[in-house]
Amino acid sequence: MEIEDDATRFVRLFMLYERRLRSFVFTLLGNRDATDEVMQEISTVLWKKFGQLEDDDCFLKWGYVVARYEVLMHRRRLARDRFVLDEGLMKLLSDEFVADELENADRSEQLRKSLDGCLESLRDPDRQIILTAYASGTKIASLAERMNVTPGSLYKWLGRIRRRLQRCIELKMISATN
């Protein structure tokens, strides 16, 4: 029974914080496939060592420590065949990310709520295309071909939409703070 309780507790905590850990990993690696791979490693390590966690309130902080280590390990493997940020810079970004996120616990949720609202405020074609482009399995080159545009044009289009979203999110978060 105790194992089952631990499993239930772990799943609850992991699901509660998985989004923030994923965002942390993606921020450092900038690659979705790599993020998925590292998240699997992180979940495995967290579960194996879950017995050591005494206070559920420390799960996120502990998760960040594990995630930071796994990201740095993965970075060493990635660096062999693609351009990635150097280790010192990753550590710096990691430390600042964790400090800010732990200090502003609601920020991640605010970002998501704001994003939902901002996506709805986009023109239909913009919303459709950015969600299609960001979905797993979408190849930008083939999507661009289907739309009869060049991949470069599509990237620029997506960039403009994203900047509109960023401005919208900033405004929403400022008004939420005030």
Binding site: S23, F26, T35, L111, L131, T132, Y134, A135, R162
Partner: peptide, 12 residues
């Protein structure tokens, strides 16, 4: 980067 990640999450 957090916006990129959030968009991937929404779309996925």
């Amino acid at each position: 980067m957090q916006l990129h990640a959030a968009l991937h999450e929404v779309a996925d």
